[in-house]
Design a binder for these strands. Structure first.
Length: 496
RNA sequence: GGUCGGGUGGCCGAGCGGCUAGGCAGAGCUCUGCAAAAGCUCGUACAGCGGUUCGAAUCCGCUCCCGACCUCCA
């Protein structure tokens, strides 16, 4: 390998060499979903981005503990029902227990993420399961003088904190600017300053989700769960914290303030943020009402979609752009991704089965392999430039297809070709997670055998120049979604 | 209004001082009973105007557009 792993660290605004605090162990915390609704494309981008970090770090030999939270308490609604917990509100509407709603959407989230071929995190803690720890950290902040009690709620004292620490270091904000720009929100009267944020909120009488605390029956504030759960499972200082760019401020900024205020340690060494997915140039977000749910992509059941898309096509689409760029959604772009993805997938399965008259080993082929190998590693090492990684995979697939069709003159040795196939598979399947699970189950094997029979019949017909029979077989298979492709030696087939 | 990030060929999208990005679509060729697939070749793009430089899509300035955050949000 000719390069080392670099990440763009939001807090320094630079690409930095990644060196874990306790190699080979790496701790990574990522902000997960609030489970009161189905996951949309944006959730996929975040999950896939950090799944790639997870996979690539493991590929490099690190032992990674990946913690991603499930938010199931405490976030406020931004409408007339202000003060009511989002999940409680939904529960009221659907006449369900709040935790029943949480379970329902959590299960659906997992289903979608699994379909996208994301590895499950090592630990997936829920905020509701860490109320005791959140109360403890709040007490700690009170003890250290960075918080105050007001009318049964507890708030973080931003001005007090910024007297000795830099509030705004992550998002690049200045206290003065924030003060002059803050808006009037609920509970503002209880706070000493509009910048202060809740650590514990006293629940209003109609609020269903509530827990006892030293200050009131209520629920934890909007940011405290992440500080608590990251430090609980990864320590007061850990390597990577990830999340969407929209969480940068105030969420992540508040996390730093809470963690430093309570534990006296800078919590995160590398801050990574993925950018947004846009629809007609505008952010896809619940609040804007322009989201497309993942299950709608999978089924095609949405007015904005021209067809259904395979989950791995969605994954490929997302990986074709760098995670820090905005990515614009369109049917045209998705269809392009579908075709490109299929090309790579087909090339890999061809490579796994290819056999020809191998040559002796040569310097030319060895050079080719080492160039590709370097390109792949360099691309991933450069802040996970999956777009470049994929570009190299396309070059490799051209070579593979050329060999298969006899149109490539540089013939490798058998060992060299196996090396190429392994390299391709390592990045395509292991690092990028784009391999489709074509396990040799029983019906797949039978289908293979059946197809062999059909192809043999068709081949015989062709031998006898009985093209009408040969074409009839091809056309009828095409009609049920199986494409026949005649090759140099024998025909191939694939399900469309 | 404050802070930050963008504008790349028909579309998506890398690059960010000199070297072909890549994919999709399109054109031509090769292969082929035909088709499909695949391979090869092609388009010569960097919002505009100035400047720095031997050399700029890449650096600087100005102008014009667009977006994000400042409020729950991946």
């Amino acid at each position: 390998m000719s390069s080392t792993l670099h990440f763009y660290n939001t807090i320094t605004r630079k690409k930095e060499v990644f060196v874990p605090a306790n190699a080979p162990f790496v701790g990574m915390y990522v902000c997960g979903p609030t489970v009161y609704g189905d996951a949309h494309l944006g959730h996929a981008r975040s999950a896939i981005t950090f799944d790639i970090v997870f996979r690539y770090l493991k590929h490099l030999g690190f032992k990674v503990r990946y913690v991603r939270n499930i938010t199931d308490v405490g976030h406020l609604e931004n409408d007339a029902d202000h003060g009511e917990d989002k999940i409680a509100k939904k529960a009221r509407l659907e006449q369900l227990e709040p935790m029943e709603v949480v379970q329902y959407y959590k299960d659906r989230y997992h289903k979608d993420m699994d379909a996208l071929n994301n590895n499950r995190p090592s630990i997936e803690p829920q905020a509701s399961g860490h109320i005791i720890e959140q109360i403890a950290m709040t007490e700690n902040l009170l003890l250290n003088g960075f918080a105050y009690v007001s009318n049964g709620s507890v708030y973080f004292d931003v001005e007090k904190y910024s007297a000795s620490h830099h509030y705004g270091k992550l998002s690049g904000r200045k206290i003065e600017d924030l003060q002059s720009n803050s808006r009037d929100l609920d509970g503002q009267g209880e706070k000493r300053s509009p910048l202060d944020f809740a650590l514990w909120k006293k629940a209003s009488p109609e609020h269903i989700m509530r827990w006892p605390s030293p200050w009131s029956d209520g629920f934890p504030g909007w940011h405290i769960e992440c500080s608590v759960m990251s430090s609980k499972y990864l320590g007061n200082s850990f390597d990577i914290h990830g999340g969407g760019l929209d969480l940068l401020f105030p969420h992540h900024e508040c996390e730093i303030a809470q963690s430093v205020g309570a534990n006296g340690e800078e919590p995160v060494r590398y801050w990574l943020h993925n950018n947004m997915i846009t629809l007609n140039g505008q952010k896809m977000a619940k609040s804007l009402g322009n989201t497309i749910m993942l299950h709608e992509f999978f089924s095609g059941d949405n007015k904005l979609l021209e067809q259904a898309y395979d989950p791995l096509t969605i994954r490929f689409f997302i990986l074709q752009a760098h995670y820090r760029s905005t990515l614009d959604f369109s049917n045209e772009a998705l269809i392009a991704a579908q075709k490109g993805y299929s090309k790579l997938k087909t090339a890999l399965s061809a490579a796994k089965e290819l056999s020809l008259n191998w040559n002796a080993e040569s310097k030319e082929v060895a050079d080719k392999i080492s160039t590709w190998s370097d390109e792949l590693a360099d691309a991933m090492n450069d802040d996970m430039n999956t777009a470049l990684t994929i570009a190299t995979l396309f070059e490799m697939s051209s070579y593979i297809n050329g060999l298969k069709n006899g149109q490539e003159n540089l013939i490798p040795s058998k060992a060299e070709f196996e090396q190429i196939t392994q390299l391709f598979a390592a990045y395509f399947e292991e690092v990028l997670g784009l391999g489709s699970e074509v396990n040799g189950n029983q019906s797949a094997e039978i289908l293979n055998d059946v197809m062999d029979v059909l192809l043999e019949l068709r081949s015989n017909a062709k031998q006898n120049k009985d093209y009408s029979t040969a074409d009839a077989i091809r056309d009828k298979l095409k009609a049920i979604g199986v494409t026949i492709m005649d090759g140099k030696d024998g025909a191939d087939w694939q399900v469309d």
